[in-house]
Design a protein around this nucleic acid. Structure first.
Lengths: 126, 126
DNA sequence: TCGGATAGGGAAAATTTTTTCCCTGTGTCA
DNA sequence: TGACACAGGGAAAAAATTTTCCCTATCCGA
């Protein structure tokens, strides 16, 4: 993948979880696969802002950790599907809790971001 | 902080949560502060592998998002303490769920990591 | 036969995050 | 007075992650 120069320490579970679903699009893909989006091309269309390359890389990492299973159908135009493993499914409550919390904060968060973007609104108007 | 060139999209709650506690040490600091480790120097001693600089930066971001409150005591040698806000406390169940899941996987995870480190054990022995 | 869909890898560039190094101050203890 | 504790910032380097670009191969339909 890439040889790390700074060794990571995995003393707390957080660090482990982050290693597994901390990638930019990983948790979203776990979501999508759970929802039934299985084929690589479908996933790519579902996350158009992600580069095709990284989706592949991160799917492979999820597979490496046993979160998803990659099934190759020996068909004419090659077909591949990803499925959550039982282990991967055990992640769903966690991922769902994370998403719910984030969604709850979403409104305030966006307001905060806009305030950050426009730091001096007083003089800007009229 | 740093001007991003690639705009982030926060359509799903996951992305929001990641923005807030996705930093390398952020979730751990939320933990520690919740446990009662309050002062910057204490936090730095608790996470010696993190650079002092990043801990400060990430604490400020947590403060910016309203997760922690920074209290400065106007004392002789300056003293600062961080506290979880009520909002920050609402993160605890999520962070705890994340940590628990990761801890449950820890054993298998370490085994996997070691296997990755030593890819060809057969020829190496004797 | 050409174009597009399928699936994917390699290399290098760009971007983002984290670290390292050096700097400011005040106060306490020896 | 010198060393160390406290708290922290700026700049640049290093590290890590993600994107971009180009490549292979097969099959289907026009």
């Amino acid at each position: 993948m890439y040889e790390k120069k700074i060794p990571k320490s995995f003393e707390c579970g957080m660090a482990v979880l982050m290693e597994i679903i901390g990638g930019k699009w990983k948790s979203y893909m776990v979501f999508l696969i759970h929802k039934g989006v299985r084929r690589p091309s479908e996933l790519q269309r579902a996350v158009p802002s992600a580069s095709r390359r990284v989706l592949n890389l991160q799917l492979r990492e999820l597979e490496f950790h046993g979160i998803v299973k990659r099934v190759i159908y020996p068909e004419a135009p090659p077909r591949v599907e990803y499925f959550l493993t039982e282990f991967g499914t055990s992640l769903m409550p966690v991922v769902t809790a994370m998403d719910n919390w984030g969604t709850g904060y979403l409104g305030a968060f966006k307001a905060l971001m806009e305030k950050k973007q426009a730091p001096a609104p007083a003089a800007a108007m009229q």
